[in-house]
Design a protein around this nucleic acid. Structure first.
Lengths: 273, 273
DNA sequence: ATTGCATGTAAACATCCTGTGATCAGCCGG
DNA sequence: CCGGCTGATCACAGGATGTTTACATGCAAT
């Protein structure tokens, strides 16, 4: 049997233009005039912005939950390349624009290769810089899952993004915020998700090697799911790979001989010859 | 039957990284020298590239299944803005880089607002342009994988990258992660693969001399394949060389005289349906 | 046919992966 | 300030997986 969903996602996007959360931008620079003008303009556009006159630690940047970072390498000093690399490596979802004084082709190439999304040479027009930021963020945003705000029922579980909670009938699963986000992500994907993928999408930055957080949350989810909806299994482990969400009624019936393992869910479209 | 496959993967590591299909880039420009240099460099990087000296229709661009488009507005002429808008609107997944002569801030702002992902001013260094292309494409690719991983059926078995598993009909082969990766790699290649090659692509590093791991896994694969799909043979040994994947119905009846061995698979030709 | 490798097969062994429970630190409202 | 809740991290155990070894078999060249 195929999984039942009450609300199909709108195939093409378009329709549910949900108000996008305001852009969060940080600027690491020291030119007061430039910062002032930029701040004004960003404010007008409705961005939350923050100005820093010295490099922030990666952890700080993570905590700020930014969409974009504008960076003058001159402020960072000699270790600016490592800094850039660290930030881009740890926050793959962050749009990083280097905005700095005159540079050589080699420097620009290096910066972009390390993960920067754009490079503006000072002096530059604030409006143009803002456009570059917007262009970079636009790209990043496209990859966020088309957050569907409509409720969906899968198996016995109803997911209510508007309430940040899941239910079986009237009964709440009492999920915490993070638990809910993981459940929602899994339920939206029809495939095996690797831990790194889950972590990156939910936590917003790259998973450290050996981190078990995802496992622990999966366990909590299973616990709550099992408690409220026994004789269904929802989250399946793919050993050495990751987890996959698929509601399946418990087979009370035992193995007829070699047990046929779970059949392959049918393919989405009519691909394949 | 037509097997669909992607182009050979660019060498490089494998295990943690997923194999990415080659980049497809088109350039609309008229400067022969510039095009030449760019083409060389793109070729070296393993990109498929195509040069156009006049604007292509949106339909044409769609048909080319591009990842990135480099565009000199001067080539388009007066209606370049509408053209840019049309292309960006219709192909939101395409990275568009405008690479054109001197311009005003207002023009660059306009271009970026219309949806361009980057703006390079000519004359520019080809390497820098390429970095900008890569930066623009980078994010698009990050989560685009599910598209690429289409299921393929070869012989009796169906390979489902989204589930990290292979099936015959509804029945799973119960492959482990590594077994699946090897099967997938073999099935994607239409040629004999040396052990070292297999090892390097799947394990991600160089095979130690005398390591038999690949053999052992091939054995396990054959075992599972035979169990679930008898009277087909899939993995063929090339003595002193390596292994080759090719589904072949078992010949029950034997040799007419010297028996013609397996007929040579038709030559590559322009494969694909 | 005989010899030297290359490969197939099977089992023992070592390692890694995951599930689980417990503990600890930070945050917020009372 | 405290208590309750959430999320991070740890240690351990059991099982699944991957690696290595040893021996049997098969191929190719002398």
């Amino acid at each position: 049997m195929s999984r039942e969903r009450t609300d199909a996602q709108p195939g093409g996007q378009a329709a549910p233009q949900r108000a996008q959360p305001r852009l969060r931008v940080a600027v690491i620079d020291r030119d007061p005039g430039f910062m002032q003008v930029l701040a004004n303009r960003l404010g007008t556009l409705g961005c939350e912005h923050r100005a820093l006159s010295s490099p922030a630690t990666v952890e700080t940047l993570v905590a700020m939950r930014l969409n974009a970072l504008v960076l003058d390498l001159a402020v960072i000093g000699p270790e600016s390349w490592e800094y850039l690399e660290r930030v881009c490596g740890r926050l793959p979802g962050l749009a990083v624009i280097v905005c700095t004084g005159p540079s050589s082709v080699a420097q620009r190439v290096r910066g972009l290769r390390l993960g920067a999304d754009g490079w503006m040479t000072k002096p530059c027009h604030p409006e143009e810089l803002i456009c570059v930021i917007e262009a970079a963020v636009r790209r990043h945003r496209r990859h966020e899952l088309p957050q569907v705000d409509v409720a969906a029922t899968i198996g016995e579980i109803t997911i209510r993004p508007d309430l940040y909670q899941a239910y079986v009938g009237e009964q709440s699963l009492e999920l915490t915020a993070r638990e809910f986000e993981i459940l929602q992500l899994l339920a939206q994907s029809d495939r095996v998700l690797r831990r790194e993928e889950i972590y990156e999408r939910v936590w917003g930055y790259t998973m450290a090697h050996g981190d078990r957080s995802v496992d622990v949350f999966i366990r909590k989810l299973r616990q709550k799911l099992r408690a409220i909806s026994p004789n269904w299994s929802y989250i399946h482990t793919h050993f050495g790979v990751g987890y996959r969400f698929a509601p399946e009624p418990e087979e009370l019936e035992l193995d007829r001989a070699g047990r046929a393992a779970e059949p392959a869910p049918e393919l989405p479209a009519a691909l394949t010859p």
